[in-house]
Design a binder for these strands. Structure first.
Length: 578
DNA sequence: GCCGTTTTCGGCCCGACTGTTTTCAGTCG
């Protein structure tokens, strides 16, 4: 039996689906493959265990056929169907589908009529005007595809939610200057669902009376826009620098709640919502909910919550709308009571000038108080992390004195003395137990030895968790979003051991980390592992990143009680002393 | 290929925009 993750198997099923699409297979069959790919990644159990027990068909979306394919992948490392398609279609062809405006039908034509089987071939053919000779293509399509291809080569990534938030803020400020032109304005899409990586930004507007045209012009004149991608009656797409797109939808006021729901997505969530509406005898779209017989609009829906209620569901927060079990839970009234930003009572991971932070202890305290917190833990780096001027034992004693001084000035606020201690490559911690014992809070983390094997890194983390002084493991996977992959680590094992040793795992809220992510945060909850949401702030302003960490927690179905820094300071101190 | 309080067949979400057509196909979200 091959050792594969659900994600790896899902990638194979999606590749199968892509190739089947290009070949021209039955679209419903293709969707079944895509659904199954998503369904297996949404499982909390390890996929290999489900396969071993022969329980694949218990997963909704996996029937006899796909269970066979998935089992075959585990037994042989691949699928004979996939291998056959790969023999039939060249390797680079599925990448063509990544170019905006180029879907399976056109890829099919390009391959079978012009023998184009990769991006480079396509670029050449477009430049030599061969593509416009195909049926259904013309000079405009050819030109659009060439532009899209060049953009794709230039920018093919997703932006982090942190970056998207900054763009969104500038958009919001721009449109607030012309607030007479609209009655409603909101963001939707994956930005509103708070996904860690966002492809584009979606905005919804209800224009003020007689201001539709003026609003459209204002949108088109957005100063950061490099190109108007498309502009219709109700929809405008702008392209900003680096190929980032912003979609605008303009609707009547009575459509607003439906549009919010519709454009927030996800697509998969909406497919199920519309099916439920259909089964109840309605058509659901961005304009309203309509009786299938009479075409009459349901008038008593004024908010998104009304819409969910009408369909027999409790309100589903945007962060959960991924069709990963939330609709079933909503129909049974079993949704989590999602943690909120206001539940967070303190910050347990931050840096000061003692190591690589930019601010003093007192400045961090002031900022935390301004944010409504009851406590912080000062957790600078330990000695061996020289790049971040890690503290020696003497520095740590020095710092303890300063903490005591500042504590006197702020009697109603609790300052915990802590450390972010390096878990060294030889499994040892950077400080002795004698040093660690004296501290209120110890965070263990890996900042070196990323090239070690998975077994070695597992062992490092597990050894650290077995040390009774270690309270939290920081950024457990070590990834930097869009920059560095996670080091090899078996998170299922780490979560199991965290439960056994009573160690909390961190959701690192820094926009470049978001580690744990929503997926593993959910798994941790299901294993009864406590979570600490920490910003790892190196500056007072970074304490505000907490919102991103809370979003990850909300996407991971976490509730207040799953998170240690929702406790008040007395409860937290009790918890840490246990 | 999956699914079932219309259950073993016959469905499978819905609409906007563009470019290509002359009533629509393809793509996207």
């Amino acid at each position: 039996m091959e050792d594969l993750t659900a994600k790896e198997v899902a990638a194979m099923l999606n590749e199968l689906a892509d190739l089947m699409e290009i070949k021209g297979d039955n679209p419903f069959r293709i969707r079944a493959y895509q659904n199954a790919a998503r369904a297996i990644t949404g499982q909390s159990e390890k996929l290999i265990d489900i396969v071993k027990d022969g329980r694949l068909q218990d997963i909704k979306g996996v029937g006899e056929g796909l269970a066979g394919i998935i089992t075959e992948i585990f037994e042989t490392g691949t699928s004979s169907q996939l291998e056959e398609l790969k023999r039939e279609l060249p390797a680079g062809i599925s990448e063509l589908l990544n170019i905006p405006g180029l879907g399976p039908k056109r890829a099919h034509q390009l391959y079978y009529e012009l023998e184009i089987n990769n991006i480079d071939d396509l670029k050449l053919a477009l430049k030599e005007n061969q593509v416009q000779t195909l049926k259904g293509f013309g000079p405009k399509t050819e030109n659009n595809l060439l532009e899209a291809l060049l953009e794709y080569e230039n920018y093919q990534g997703l932006m982090t939610i942190g970056r998207a938030d900054k763009l969104a803020k500038r958009l919001e400020e721009y449109f607030k200057e012309s607030d007479g032109l609209w009655k409603q304005m909101s963001f939707a899409g994956s930005l509103r669902r708070r996904k860690e990586l966002v492809k584009d930004i979606d905005m919804i507007f209800v224009p003020a009376e007689d201001k539709l045209e003026e609003l459209k012009d204002t949108i088109k004149n957005y100063p950061e826009s490099e190109k108007i991608e498309l502009a219709g009656d109700t929809k405008i797409t702008l392209q900003l620098e680096n190929g980032i797109k912003v979609d605008f939808r303009l609707l009547e006021e009575e459509s607003y709640p439906f549009a919010q729901q519709h454009f927030t997505g996800s697509k998969e969530h909406n497919v199920v919502i519309r099916r439920i509406a259909k089964e109840a005898g309605y058509i659901s779209n961005e304009y309203g909910l309509f009786d299938r017989e009479t075409d009459e609009k349901v008038t008593r829906i004024n908010t998104e919550a009304d819409l969910y209620e009408f369909l027999g569901l409790s309100y589903i927060i945007p962060e959960l709308r991924e069709d990963k079990g939330e609709i079933e839970a909503a129909s049974e009234n079993k949704l989590p009571e999602s943690v909120e930003l206001a539940d967070i009572k303190g910050e347990l991971h931050l840096h000061t000038r003692y190591s690589d932070g930019a601010c003093t202890i007192e400045e961090m305290v002031e900022a935390a108080i301004a944010q409504g917190y009851e406590y912080i833990a000062v957790t600078d780096h330990s000695e061996s992390l020289r790049i971040a001027s890690g503290l020696t034992v003497e520095d740590l004693e020095e710092q303890a004195k300063e903490i005591a001084e500042v504590q006197k000035k702020y009697p109603d606020f609790k300052i915990l003395s802590g450390i972010e201690v390096d878990i060294l490559s030889d499994n040892n911690l950077d400080f002795s137990d004698e040093v660690l014992e004296k501290l209120d809070l110890v965070i263990g983390s890996i900042h070196s030895g990323f090239t070690q094997s998975e077994a070695e890194i597992n062992e490092r983390i597990i050894t650290a968790m077995e040390n009774p002084n270690v309270d939290i493991i920081a950024h457990p996977r070590g990834r930097l979003l869009g920059k560095r992959e996670a080091y090899p680590v078996d998170m299922d094992k780490i979560i199991k051991e965290a439960a056994r040793t009573g160690t909390a795992l961190e959701i690192n809220a820094s926009p470049s980390r978001l580690d744990l992510d929503d997926h593993y945060a959910k798994k941790a909850k299901e294993a009864d592992v406590k979570i600490s949401i920490n910003t790892d702030a190196h500056h007072t302003r970074e304490l505000k990143d907490m919102e991103l960490g809370v979003s990850v927690a909300r996407r991971g179905w976490l509730e207040k009680d799953d998170i240690i820094n929702t406790m008040n300071s007395d409860q937290l101190i009790d918890y840490l002393n246990k």
